[in-house]
Design a binder for these strands. Structure first.
Lengths: 222, 222, 222, 222
DNA sequence: TATGAATGAGAGTTCATTCAT
DNA sequence: CATGAATGAACTCTCATTCAT
């Protein structure tokens, strides 16, 4: 009894179990969202678990039921953000058929879409997760490296496709690191501040121009 | 009594006063250096004033005699670092007679000299001073903006001198922010890690090529 | 319907009721056993109800259905242990026909049988139930006193039977307390430790010799 | 200046330094004594650091300035108690010129002096320090073993002096463990309880008789 | 000036217990 | 009966800061 209508084997869950699972998921997200808001507004160390619990309208104990500890909150947040970043921005690097356009699309995706839609996530990624704890730093670095590899791979494919060579062995990775640096600093400088400038689009376009120019110049394209 | 032999007016100090002043200066620097070491090794929040006092071989009270509070230590450190950065790297921007060479020199100065000589300062600048407290963030931003302005000024002078125009109004500042982003990420990625790679020079050169290429391309140079 | 075939009056239970009762008994024992294991392995205060529930493969709520609270678990455990102790060791005191042999048999029963068979129960009795909470202490003392009385009664019967007198009024009880002390300390010292010595039998025999010697000497026997 | 009158070399401390050192010592003892009282009255786990600080009339921070943590308080207490025990009771074992009298003196010293004078220390030793934490247990065992060795050594000397042999190799240690067990249980049963019986002396004498009788019987003395 | 003991607010975390489902 | 998510009081411990000496 109390099975879903499609119940055909032991794997299905009862309705109430399904509802409970859904509620769990929601609670988890509510708490994570509250942590994100607080971290961005007041800073990771200035935010106490109590404040997060208050904002999420749960008890402290509940926060600890869903997350191992405070660090874990930040790490889960980073995870989520990294996934979002790679599935939006990273996808552009991967999809574009190995031309410079891919880099332009990725840039616009990041500056116009990502930063606009998720300014809080950008703040977490580029401010609140830096230098807060060894474990977080370590985790952040791991995720950062993945993005570097995404970009490096795109550069490699492009060089093969367009038949040109990079000046030296390490060029590819260095360029990738430079691009990520540009993303980070443009985002930190313009997108996260309280009063965002109105010409964000132009800023993004300029930044993309700059980084594409860098690639072009280094590869002797055009 | 106890005046220097050259005592001719009220401005001169007695010998003991001079010694005391010198000692004060030394103490100040000892403490600041200890703070720097600890912040880099263990992180700002993980470092207690007691640990800093221990390393500096003074009492906690003495630390508070020379510095207003813990935040002040980080701010003074930032100040010192920023001064050093601007007097070394920024100088290259200002000195170079308004050609692209200035940007190359500045880049090499930063990657080959600055990062090599002061890895701890780089760590403070790009890791320990981010997202630790509103006041520090604010201060950091101010210093950051100064550098942006240094670079912007150099770009402007260059455009006037070489008689070219930037694509749009905001281009100059965006480029400056991009350059700073490249500095930051290359430094963070390669220079601060435990085991620094051996081909640091090449990495620096590649990064400089990339950013100079970006400028070149945007300005239609060459 | 669903009655046992022998159902002749209202006292008999239906089959399913019987099964349920049996299952209840089993659950109760499973949980109690899990608590015992955890208390011994990690200590009473270091063991959470959650851990016990996990080990017993039931939910926390179920633990609270069978036991009033955490203290109750320890008290029920003590009860069980005390019952076992009195029905094994105490029986020897009562059965032996009022000679010293009874004390020897009891001793061997305790050291060779009881400690060997139930090292965990010994650990609960002599380590985990001491100084954990006022109520437990109080309960423990009550059970302890019962054993003292068992031994005292045996001593009294022996003195009447063998026609000798104890040096003073309080001698009997004091001897009983001494004997229990010997039991406790020998057990704690040798039987509970991680690596039990191999000559346990000899140790037990020596301890019994010692305590019997004490009785003998005090009563002028032999 | 501000040296003690006997100041003759650099080792002496100034008067104020001496006073501060004395005050430190006093504070340490005050806190330790407060912990002892609370542990005995309410039990180790039921006692919070706050309560100890309150009783000692210092702040929580001060407790942590003098002691590493709560466990440390108990361990320091154990240390102090063990030192006292060995310097009072253990001394009797060592001093007595290798006859049974030494064991009697030690017994009386323990029951009549030690338990009477320091009932709280007895409670700590035999109740509050058992099964509270692995580290404490471990420490307690170490101290316990020292006492076992003291007694064993006394037994050995006695056997050499009075020219008799113990029934088996392990007899000596077993007897020592038995004696400690008697001490513990007599003390726990009679000396620690709220309403101590009036015939404590007689109880002690009986216990001593019992244990001496045990030794005598095992060694074939008399 | 220098010291370092003292402070105490506040943090993170645990866990016995409850109760709606 | 069984479940397990939710609670929140209570705990231990840290540490920036002060101040009498």
């Amino acid at each position: 009894m109390e099975k879903t209508s499609a119940a055909k084997n032991g794997e299905v869950l009862s309705r109430s179990a399904l509802r409970r699972q859904r509620e769990r998921e929601e609670r988890y997200q509510t708490i994570l969202k509250a942590a994100e808001s607080m971290f961005v507004k007041e800073g990771y160390h200035q935010t106490s678990i109590n404040k997060i619990a208050d904002l999420a309208e749960v008890s402290v104990g509940t926060v600890y039921f869903y997350f191992k500890n405070k660090e874990d909150l930040l790490i889960q947040l980073l995870d989520e953000i990294s996934y979002l970043f790679r599935s939006r921005v990273g996808a552009e690097f991967r999809n574009a058929d190995s031309t410079l356009e891919g880099f332009m699309n990725a840039g616009h995706m990041f500056f116009d879409e990502f930063c606009n839609k998720y300014p809080e996530k950008v703040a977490i990624m580029y401010r609140e997760s830096i230098g807060q704890s060894p474990l977080v730093d370590q985790y952040r670095e791991k995720l950062h490296n993945k993005s570097i590899q995404d970009i490096s791979a795109a550069l490699k494919r492009m060089s093969e496709n367009m038949n040109f060579r990079f000046p030296s062995e390490e060029s590819i990775e260095v360029i990738a690191v430079c691009i990520m640096g540009i993303y980070q600093n443009i985002a930190s400088h313009y997108m996260v501040s309280k009063e965002r400038p109105k010409n964000l689009e132009k800023i993004g376009r300029n930044a993309v121009s700059f980084l594409v120019g860098g690639i072009r110049d280094m590869c002797g394209l055009r």
